[in-house]
């Protein structure tokens, strides 16, 4: 499917549809079976490859050469977030960061913020989203103080809250669960990019 058609995804990015209530992000045409869970399953890898390759094709045709490394890095994280479960806090944080950095219209961003807030309110709400709803800040929203440390929680948990997207203000158990899911998808993204680099490298022994 992807080899034949080369349609630009600008229209899709201008008006991204709200994700369906079920956790399977079944948007691609070629993807028929929904991923069972947000784990390292083949269908999750397929969704990851689909989103990232589509972004790479768009970057290859539209982005000027000096800006490509940064744009590819951003596309890597947004592809990760799209391929994963939309109910995860780290995916919502990454997509919100992505939307804010692209300068999405106020109506769109407010709608997305409302959707994110409604979804996050089912579990523990991170203060970052609440702060973003009040005032529109820069790429890095003001991080409020971490919650009171739980009994037996190491001091290293604060460092983990800083490097996991959406981790600021998260409770310890949720932080551990989000971190495990984030590491899984981050590792899958690195493996995908490494396989693409091996594919495009000039000294390719298999092409001989």
């Amino acid at each position: 499917m992807a080899g034949g058609k080369r349609t630009t995804a600008r229209h899709q990015h201008n008006h991204p549809p709200p994700p369906p209530p079920n956790p399977s992000p079944n948007r691609g045409r070629g993807v028929a079976d929904p991923p069972p869970a947000s784990d390292d399953s083949p269908s999750s890898k397929r969704m990851l490859a689909f989103h990232f390759l589509r972004a790479l094709a768009r970057i290859h045709s539209t982005t000027p050469a000096p800006r490509r490394p940064r744009t590819i890095r951003r596309a890597a994280y947004s592809s990760m977030a799209r391929a994963a479960s939309p109910r995860r806090a780290w995916t919502q944080a990454l997509l919100l960061r992505r939307a804010r950095s692209r300068g999405v219209a106020v109506v769109g961003s407010s709608r997305r913020a409302v959707l994110l807030r409604r979804r996050v309110s089912a579990s523990a709400p991170p203060p970052m989203l609440r702060a973003s709803a009040g005032a529109t800040s820069a790429a890095a929203p003001p991080v409020q103080g971490p919650p009171p440390r739980q009994a037996g929680e190491p001091a290293r948990a604060d460092a983990l809250r800083r490097i996991v997207p959406g981790g600021a203000g998260m409770e310890y158990c949720s932080l551990l669960d989000e971190t495990a899911d984030y590491v899984l998808h981050l590792r899958a993204q690195v493996q995908l990019m490494q396989s693409l680099v091996d594919l495009f490298s000039p000294p390719n022994p298999t092409s001989n």
């Binding site: 790479l56 970057i59 290859h60 050469a65 490509r68 490394p69 940064r70 590819i72 890095r73 890597a76 994280y77 983990l160 490097i163 996991v164 971190t179 984030y182 590491v183 981050l186 590792r187 993204q189 690195v190 990019m193 490494q194 693409l196 680099v197 495009f200 490298s201």
Partner: peptide, 21 residues
């Protein structure tokens, strides 16, 4: 581990940008 994975994403992004060109 997360920091090393972040660094790998940065490095691979630069490599992919060069290869795409």
């Amino acid at each position: 581990y997360i920091r090393s994975l972040h660094q790998e994403v940065d490095n691979l992004s630069e490599t992919l940008a060069e290869l795409l060109a």
